[in-house]
Design a protein around this nucleic acid. Structure first.
Ligand SMILES: NC(=O)c1ccc[n+]([C@@H]2O[C@H](COP(=O)([O-])OP(=O)(O)OC[C@H]3O[C@@H](n4cnc5c(N)ncnc54)[C@H](O)[C@@H]3O)[C@@H](O)[C@H]2O)c1
Ligand SMILES: NC(=O)c1ccc[n+]([C@@H]2O[C@H](COP(=O)([O-])OP(=O)(O)OC[C@H]3O[C@@H](n4cnc5c(N)ncnc54)[C@H](O)[C@@H]3O)[C@@H](O)[C@H]2O)c1
Lengths: 262, 262
DNA sequence: CCATCTTTGTGCACGCGTTCACAAAGACAT
DNA sequence: ATGTCTTTGTGAACGCGTGCACAAAGATGG
């Protein structure tokens, strides 16, 4: 998932529920695939299956956009692709800057799916002087000293942060001050931004921890021991399939010893 | 039809709400930072600010775990770190395999935050024979022919898919058949899995499109006109019945329906 | 022991999102 | 035109998540 921070400007955004907006790209992807196969129309049932959602939900989602279907037939694929693209703002070009061209930033820079939908990598920015001028994915890296100039010059309104967590807030502040109003944050930090700026985060660590929670729960049910263990501490839960005995992991993030208070 | 998608296990009796589970890693991160600064206790107000959430929400979240606070004082940092870690299943070791060691997979393999919380990269798997044996982030890449053996041997229950979208479902099927029950998918595809298997996806493209939607909305407020007369909607079909009468979707701002293709 | 102050834990109300179920709309055949 | 069949669009019910507001719990001080 990856959600942004608190999202409630009190002013209802546009009639379209946030949950619906989050699914539109999903529909768009499925529709694009149908379009490439020259499928003329599609029913809500078929499209819903392709997008992995409930058909009633899909119909309600589309009802927020308007009545674009034909009863008894379904939806016109090409037409719907256009309508959703327009609604999402993909009919225009969105220049994007990526800040922090390390392992992740470099991978993002070369990501094909980036440019596929109106998103254009306008610039790659890094603080390391050694990287300045070096081409990554065909785009020369620019020094962060020029960050403000680049953003204003190219009219960039979307920024991607792929720097270490320690400097993410600082980078964010500079981006916002220079005019960026949408930020996609890959650094594991909570960013503070003024009103009117949207932040969405992608946090691998959080996703894994959520998976671990459910994984543990599944394992707990199998052993039948204490399915709903409640809060009765003391011992660690039974290890599921092949969980190696904590062979002294303790990552660089510095895990904590875990001590019970008196 | 195992259209199985992610979806909630419906947290039956005495379960922790999914929304709460998703925030626990956030609290844990903030608490870990406090722990490293040797802060003994923290109030819900302070911790909520650090995690970027509402304090009432935080207290309610913690109430699902039990009564771990002390009224008039706050929460014991070390104790909470332990409790949340335990609840999330981070007190045990989780071996993880990454399939598809391309640009993204390689970045993930070298990600420090991966190993920081009990997640251990057990293996890197790729279908390209040229990569087999080559070390990435210090770990030798193994060929996908050995996928099943690796998973069973190491008791891996969490898999990360970073392959091209076209083969993601196929890779997913093999992972699941071999015993993996939690999948983190980076490929832009909807994965079908049987019940009991959790899938979470990280989709950069979707995040950007959501940002673009809001960005367009912000821009639309400034400039009164809709800006793009490119597609020229020639004919304006009658507004779908009840735009104003029956239930009024849409806001007061009159949207311009485009032409329906023949 | 009592008073006061701080902060938790939670009952409650509200709004959003999901899902069901069905009338209405249109296609198509006769 | 009429009837049948398919599929949309949506009213309504429901459940989940959020945030308010406050009583209770415990610390602290006299
Ligand atoms: N690698 C992953 O798979 C992964 C996954 C999830 C999250 N993340 C997060 O993404 C971020 C980047 O990860 P990474 O592996 O690419 O790290 P990295 O160290 O390889 O790259 C960080 C880059 O940021 C640059 N940088 C540092 N300070 C900067 C500044 N002030 N302005 C501009 N650039 C600056 C550095 O020069 C470096 O090139 C980290 O916060 C990490 O936690 C990484
Ligand atoms: N690069 C990014 O920033 C980024 C961002 C979001 C999503 N993605 C998605 O992540 C996936 C990987 O992206 P990438 O840029 O690393 O692509 P890539 O082409 O660099 O890497 C793909 C790797 O998968 C391997 N592979 C192919 N088929 C395989 C199979 N059947 N089994 C095992 N390995 C197989 C290939 O050998 C290759 O090494 C893609 O689906 C992409 O859309 C990438």
């Amino acid at each position: 998932m990856a959600t942004g921070r608190t999202h409630r400007p009190a002013t209802r955004s546009r009639g379209i529920p946030e949950a619906t907006v989050a699914r539109l790209p999903l529909y768009l992807r499925a529709l694009t695939a149908l379009s490439e196969r020259s499928v003329p129309t599609v029913s809500s049932e078929e499209l819903a299956a392709a997008a992995g959602v409930n058909s009633a939900k899909l119909r309600k989602d589309f009802s927020y956009l308007g009545s674009y279907g034909t009863r008894g037939v379904g939806y016109d694929v090409e037409y719907l692709v256009y309508q959703i693209s327009r609604e999402l703002g993909l009919t225009q070009d969105w220049p994007v800057v990526i800040v922090g061209i390390g392992n992740l930033g470099a991978a993002l820079a070369g990501y094909g799916g980036f440019a596929s939908r109106g998103f254009r990598v306008a610039a790659l920015i890094d603080a390391d002087p050694a990287m300045t001028g070096r081409p990554v994915a065909g785009i020369p890296v620019q020094h962060s000293d020029d960050l403000e100039r680049i953003i204003e010059q190219d009219g960039v309104s979307i920024g991607v942060i792929a720097t270490p967590a320690g400097v993410a807030q600082q980078v964010c502040d500079r981006l916002v001050a220079a005019g960026v109003t949408s930020i996609l944050n890959f650094a594991p930090t909570v960013l503070s931004v003024p009103d009117g700026v949207d932040v969405r985060k992608v946090d691998l660590s959080i996703e894994l921890q959520i998976l671990a929670f459910h994984e543990q729960r599944k394992a707990g049910e199998d052993t039948g021991a204490d399915g709903d263990a409640e809060h009765t501490p003391a011992v660690v839960p039974p290890a599921p399939r092949g969980a190696a005995g904590t062979g002294g992991r303790k990552g660089p993030d510095g895990d904590v010893p875990a001590v019970m208070p008196a």
